[in-house]
């Protein structure tokens, strides 16, 4: 059993999974608290559209994924600020439009391209050393920025207008958060895939949300859960020869439902009167 840890590809995928688990779950805390869940899902599909365009044009996929991701979150941010349309409606439109683009680009490609599907469904076991380096760099960038601006990010998640009123540059921090969401999605695209990446952002944070009444504890729990699920999912997928993305996400989902069962927030409502 332990011998699998001696394979290079296994080491790479475990490191990649742990990083993605950590980055996704920390950003997830702010996404869940600030109510941006749907935004992230839309971004994942936009980033995937970027990847398909890159393959169509024969360009490197990462930069285009970043550009598509950022464009989507920024447009979303402007729409939320203007508040003229319900956010879920405008995201719903963007989300399906980018998915349509992705399908269009795939249709324009000659023949079947397995690599493209790798970005859709994720394939952590095939992460190359260069990809791992990119994941490493982006992860540290995202985690570093989150750490530096954590107090402002918590504040806007709690109450953006109050944050603005008490002297925090709340709008800029909000756009920073959106930018980090886009980068996180791109970092995770190769490992868990466009369809499942958002589960990695939402589930560990929502699981932690069930378990505590403190911001600090919620973050700590979310990161632990994120890393455990990502690494655990990779090991399961190796041992039982399962696709890695679903293994990670279903493991996280199981933990989520367990946490709902033991949640103190749920118990609080239980006693009648």
């Amino acid at each position: 059993m332990l011998e699998m840890l001696s394979y290079d590809f296994m080491q790479r995928s475990l490191v990649a999974a742990a990083l993605v688990g950590a980055v996704c779950s920390v950003i997830g805390v702010f996404v869940v608290l600030r109510g941006l869940a749907f935004v992230g899902a839309g971004t994942a599909h936009a980033a995937f559209a970027g990847v398909t365009l890159a393959y169509l044009l024969g360009l490197p996929p990462l930069p285009l994924a970043v550009i598509f991701g950022l464009a989507t979150v920024w447009v979303t941010g402007v729409m939320e600020e203007k508040g003229q349309m319900k956010l879920d409606v405008s995201i719903g439109i963007l989300y399906t439009a980018t998915m349509a683009l992705a399908i269009l680009f795939i249709g324009l490609m000659k023949g079947y391209n397995a690599e493209v599907y790798g970005y859709l469904f994720g394939s952590v076991l095939s992460v190359t050393p260069e990809e791992l380096r990119a994941i490493l760099a982006l992860s540290f960038l995202v985690l570093g920025v989150l750490l530096v601006f954590s107090k402002e990010l918590y504040f806007i998640a709690f109450d953006q207008e109050m944050a603005e009123a008490s002297g925090v540059p709340a709008r800029r921090i909000f756009y920073l958060l959106l930018t980090l969401v886009a980068l996180t999605v791109v970092v995770s695209l190769k490992t868990v895939g466009a369809i499942l990446v958002f589960a990695m952002v939402l589930i560990p944070a929502s699981t932690a949300y069930q378990l505590t009444h403190s911001l600090f504890h919620m973050t700590a729990y979310a990161v632990s859960i994120g890393i455990v699920c990502a690494v655990g999912g990779v090991l399961l997928s190796y041992v039982w020869d399962l696709p890695s993305g679903p293994a990670i996400v279903l493991l996280a989902t199981t933990l989520f439902f367990l946490s709902v069962l033991v949640s103190p927030k749920r118990l609080r409502r239980a006693p009648a009167v």
Binding site: F158, S166, G167, V168, K265
Partner: peptide, 25 residues
Amino acid sequence: RNFPITVLEAVMMGRYGALGLFRRP
């Protein structure tokens, strides 16, 4: 009511604007 924040965490937020970016409480 489900927002996970303690009383002290909420009051500490009052310090954030005065602290400015980059400085920890």
